[in-house]
């Protein structure tokens, strides 16, 4: 717990110093996306890694946040800072309502139901052309402004996004090490035992599902206001799978793991540019390899691998 906090402080300092270290504007732009994806991966990890409940529809909540912010600030000329919480409240209420029936389902059934939910939301983005602009997207979304400064450059956006991302990480670390976080992990390990000890598993799952949706919505709002243009393609089934990949690769139940997964999957396409569309082969293979050989994700797998190699060397030395 103390260790987590120290690690977090070191991490936060590094994040804040990063723009001084790499002066390149292009990398800043990619790191903005790493920040948004980190928020999303942490949100999904709270649900999947801590509570053990899968969601294949989180891109939908992300998209709802983005579209609500986008529509409220363009069509209804709301202030972006006002639109963000309004979007979050709407998405949170929706998730809370649907959470009760959907979280009654388990395992494969929950996966399919959340997937269906995500697809329905995606279809709505495409079809409600009057509101969302349909497949061609919604443009002219205003940037966020603070004390007269508009967040319209990569470096400014970097600080904006990472302030939020770090806050989400810190909250999640606090949550994980608290009464509620323990109850979540308890439900994950043995739901019946948790209930016998007085944990209202059903309510708790809905709460965490709602929180996870709210964080995703916030990430969506931030995405809309930094990009100023959004289209349904960013919020489809494939992106839900990408989020899942981030969480699994980083490590279920590890907040820093989610950052690692988000960073890896956001940077990977930059390196895979040569193979362009074929990056999905790499995602597929990564998912399979991770589940088979490193089910704990990178945060646990790498140290274990290191110990194994070091151990073998030690044995060789002794022999």
């Amino acid at each position: 717990m103390k260790k987590d906090l120290l690690l977090f402080i070191a991490f936060a300092l590094l994040v804040m110093a990063a723009p001084q270290l790499f002066k390149g504007g292009y990398l800043m732009n990619v790191l903005v996306f790493v920040g948004i994806n980190t928020m999303l991966a942490v949100a999904l990890n709270l649900l999947l890694g801590y509570a053990g409940q899968i969601s294949l529809g989180h891109a939908g909540f992300f998209g709802l946040g983005a579209y609500l912010s986008g529509i409220l600030t363009t069509t209804y000329s709301m202030d972006p800072w006002g639109a963000m919480p309004v979007a979050a409240i709407i998405v949170g209420s929706l998730a809370g309502l649907i959470g009760f029936p959907i979280l009654k389902l388990k395992g494969h059934y929950l996966a399919m139901a959340t997937l269906g939910l995500g697809i329905i939301i995606f279809i709505v983005f495409n079809e409600t052309v009057d509101l969302t602009g349909g497949p061609s997207g919604l443009s002219g979304i205003p940037n966020l402004k603070l004390a007269g400064v508009s967040f319209d450059s990569d470096v400014k956006n970097y600080y904006l996004i990472w302030t939020f991302a770090l806050a989400v990480m810190l909250f999640s670390i606090n949550l994980a090490n608290s009464r509620v976080g323990r109850a979540l992990r308890a439900v994950h390990d043995s739901e019946v035992a948790a209930q016998v000890l007085g944990v209202n598993a059903r309510l708790l799952k809905v709460q965490i599902f709602t929180l996870s949706a709210v964080i995703s919505s916030l990430a969506g709002s931030l995405y809309a206001h930094t990009m100023t243009f959004i289209s349904p393609a960013s919020f489809g089934f494939n992106f839900s799978i990408e989020l899942l990949t981030m969480v699994v690769i980083g490590g279920l139940g590890s907040i820093f793991g989610s950052f690692l997964g988000a960073a890896l999957l956001t940077l990977l396409p930059e390196f895979l540019r040569a193979v362009n569309d074929y990056d999905i082969i790499v995602y597929g293979a990564l998912l399979m390899v991770m589940v088979m050989f490193m089910p704990g994700g990178l945060v646990r797998g790498i140290p274990a691998l290191y110990r194994k190699i070091a151990g073998q060397k030690g044995e060789a030395g002794n022999a």
Binding site: S178, R179, G181, A183, V199
Partner: peptide
């Protein structure tokens, strides 16, 4: 976890 019913901090208080 056994102390769950003997404590009351909610999701937000914990975060």
């Amino acid at each position: 976890v056994g102390m769950h019913t003997k404590s009351s901090s909610g999701l937000l208080a914990c975060s």
